[in-house]
Simulated assay, not measured.
Amino acid sequence: MRPLGKPKKGFEKRYIEIFKMVESDNIPKPTFWDKLKGKKFPTKNELIQEWFENQIPTYETIKAPMVGRDQEAEEWLKEKYEELEKKPSWEEFLKEHQGFYVIPLAKEQDGVPCYISLGQDENVFRGQFLVDCVDIIGEDLANEAWETKLAEDTLDYGNRLMSVAEKIAKENNLEHLKDQKIPPDADEETIESKLHIVYSLAKWLTFYGKNGHGYEADF
Results as ranks from 00 to 15, higher is better:
96 E>R: 01
165 A>R: 03
191 I>A: 05
118 L>Q: 14
69 R>A: 10
196 H>M: 08
3 P>R: 02
101 Y>V: 12
122 E>T: 09
92 E>H: 00
103 I>Y: 06
55 Q>H: 03
64 A>P: 00
193 S>G: 10
27 I>E: 15
46 E>Q: 14
94 L>W: 00
197 I>Q: 04
187 D>C: 06
219 F>K: 10
48 I>N: 01
184 P>V: 06
45 N>H: 13
53 E>R: 08
82 E>G: 03
168 I>K: 00
39 K>P: 00
155 L>G: 07
43 T>F: 09
172 N>G: 05
54 N>V: 04
199 Y>L: 00
40 K>G: 11
27 I>R: 13
83 E>V: 06
37 K>M: 10
39 K>L: 14
158 G>V: 03
169 A>T: 02
6 K>L: 15
105 L>C: 01
60 E>V: 10
207 F>Q: 05
90 W>K: 01
2 R>K: 15
218 D>I: 15
214 G>R: 01
142 A>E: 14
45 N>I: 13
137 I>Y: 09
80 K>T: 04
72 E>Y: 04
108 E>Y: 04
46 E>R: 07
158 G>R: 00
156 D>I: 14
198 V>I: 08
57 P>G: 06
98 Q>F: 02
104 P>G: 08
209 G>E: 10
53 E>I: 03
7 P>Y: 01
145 A>W: 10
52 F>Y: 13
15 Y>I: 14
50 E>V: 01
188 E>H: 12
88 P>W: 01
18 I>D: 02
2 R>D: 15
122 E>K: 12
37 K>Y: 02
219 F>S: 12
92 E>K: 03
106 A>M: 03
43 T>Y: 10
133 C>Y: 01
98 Q>V: 02
85 E>W: 07
163 S>C: 10
185 D>E: 12
38 G>D: 12
77 L>W: 01
69 R>C: 05
179 D>C: 08
79 E>Q: 08
35 K>C: 12
180 Q>R: 04
187 D>N: 11
203 K>Q: 11
23 E>C: 11
103 I>Q: 10
170 K>Q: 06
15 Y>P: 09
97 H>R: 05
121 D>M: 15
167 K>M: 06
56 I>S: 07
134 V>N: 04
134 V>K: 15
69 R>F: 06
35 K>F: 07
173 N>K: 11
5 G>P: 00
146 W>V: 09
193 S>K: 08
117 S>F: 08
59 Y>M: 12
2 R>F: 15
153 D>R: 10
80 K>N: 11
126 R>G: 14
123 N>Q: 11
206 T>G: 06
3 P>T: 07
160 R>N: 11
59 Y>S: 12
105 L>Q: 01
30 P>T: 07
76 W>M: 06
82 E>H: 02
11 F>T: 05
155 L>P: 03
86 K>I: 13
8 K>A: 02
185 D>H: 06
79 E>L: 08
64 A>S: 09
102 V>E: 04
72 E>L: 06
88 P>Q: 01
30 P>C: 09
59 Y>T: 14
153 D>A: 06
49 Q>P: 08
107 K>M: 08
140 D>V: 13
144 E>C: 07
200 S>A: 12
193 S>H: 14
166 E>V: 00
165 A>F: 02
48 I>M: 14
72 E>R: 10
163 S>E: 13
208 Y>R: 02
11 F>S: 03
17 E>W: 02
114 C>Q: 13
191 I>R: 05
122 E>A: 13
95 K>T: 00
86 K>G: 07
101 Y>E: 09
206 T>D: 07
140 D>C: 08
105 L>M: 03
